[in-house]
Amino acid sequence: MNWDGDAEPGDVGRLRCLLDNVQGLVDALTSVRWKKQQDALCEISEHGMVFTVEEWSCLQARVYFRKELFRTYDYQAQVRPRFGVSLNLLVDCLNTFTSSTGSTALELRYPGFDMQLMLKLVDANNICHSAEIRTLIPDTIPRDFSADGNFDGQSPTCFAVKSSSLKEAIDDLEWPGSSIQIKMCPDPPQVVFKGEGHGDLQIVFPYSVHADLFIAFQCEREVSYRYKYKHLRATTANIPSSILKDNRGSKLTIGEGGLLKVQHLISVRQNPMDHNHNYQTQGVRVSYIEFYVMPDEDEPDSPPSS
């Protein structure tokens, strides 16, 4: 593989970064892999890398890999290049790099001589692993969803629970299938997941300051929206079990028009073989994964009461 003509450190408009924990990136990207054939859009900026996966403008996932998660991150241009890449291929390629031993970091470069994404790792046994992944010219710009803004002058309606609890509830809603209603009420404070299809199933998360089910709960008025089950399932189905064990929590926000934002925090541990590497703080080792789910328009639910 030809690495000639690639980025030199400091090259403007060219990315060169070193990543210690390849498994962390694999886990994060695996979480947004809900289909066999999926393309992701990667955006590079001076703040880090963002991978976006979208389906029919009603389901979108974003993986944020901030520059602090890399051992070194060298990209200084103001422009933010975007390229498409086969998500499955990227995950499978990154996975091959996780089989190597030692504390050496994976080197990522973009662009290669033919706009490829270049990966290279020389492990402790002097074995050189490298990959060139062909990138695609993106034909669409992903929608810029946001569910955090205030609407009607009120705070956004949101709650945060342990990721495993959320996944368990959504998995249980599989048998009624079809569309799932998510209802949040301030009085009594609770979140209700209700599935109606082949049968009815209702799962209630009652809020109590004394119970540890909720990490956060914020609801000033009752909101209720329906979402396609397959879209809800995509938000939790592919989270690796290692992430669920960490249980850092998942936050669900219902924004204007019923736009649901599901945010997972993922711990990106430093390479267990590399105890000497000095990270700035504990807090930087968290990656964010966000899903945006549009409400089910086929079966409109009652609008949120004011």
């Binding site: 291929l89 390629c93 490298s130 992944i133």
Partner: peptide, 12 residues
């Protein structure tokens, strides 16, 4: 393949 070229080299 048409989309990727990935490999490893074990030396010496």
């Amino acid at each position: 393949t048409t989309l990727v070229s990935i490999g490893s080299e074990f030396r010496n």
